[in-house]
């Protein structure tokens, strides 16, 4: 049962509702339910946050190493260099997100312009 397995207009929306909305809002609703009842600092929540963070980081890694569309036509070394230098700038500038993103974009643009 994949996204493309049923050829009806409503199937993609049902897929998004179950795999997207339900899988996301159930945690928000549980958060309201438990609000004030469990400590944010409990060890179980540290472990839970670690898994969630690793999962999102895996997505980031895939977006950079195995991108789709126009980014797929750029060299891997250029993408890694752009992301790496952007992240380094972000850390050096005391976590200025805007600077990190801008540096990555400039490195990518320069690389494409120079035909690296």
């Amino acid at each position: 049962m994949t996204f493309h397995s049923i050829d009806a207009w409503w199937w993609p929306y049902l897929f998004i509702l179950i795999a997207g909305w339900l899988a996301t809002d159930m945690w928000r609703f549980l958060g309201v339910y438990f609000g004030g009842r469990i400590s944010e600092r409990s060890e179980a929540l540290v472990a839970v946050r670690a898994v969630a963070t690793a999962l999102v980081a895996a997505v980031i890694g895939n977006l950079i190493v195995f991108p789709t569309g126009a980014l797929a036509d750029t060299p891997l070394a250029l993408r890694l260099g752009a992301a790496g230098l952007g992240f380094a700038a972000f850390l050096l500038a005391r976590r200025k997100m805007l600077l990190g993103i801008a540096v990555a974009e400039v490195v990518l643009a320069l690389g494409l312009w120079l035909g690296v």
């Binding site: 670690a50 963070t53 980031i60 126009a70 993408r79 992301a83 952007g86 993103i101 990518l108």
Partner: peptide
Amino acid sequence: LAALFLLTPMYFLTSLWGSARESAAHFA
């Protein structure tokens, strides 16, 4: 388009690191 596609991973790379509360999140 290539530049636009790079925005999402860079946003996450920086915001995830910035919002981490404990070392576990950085290792993760």
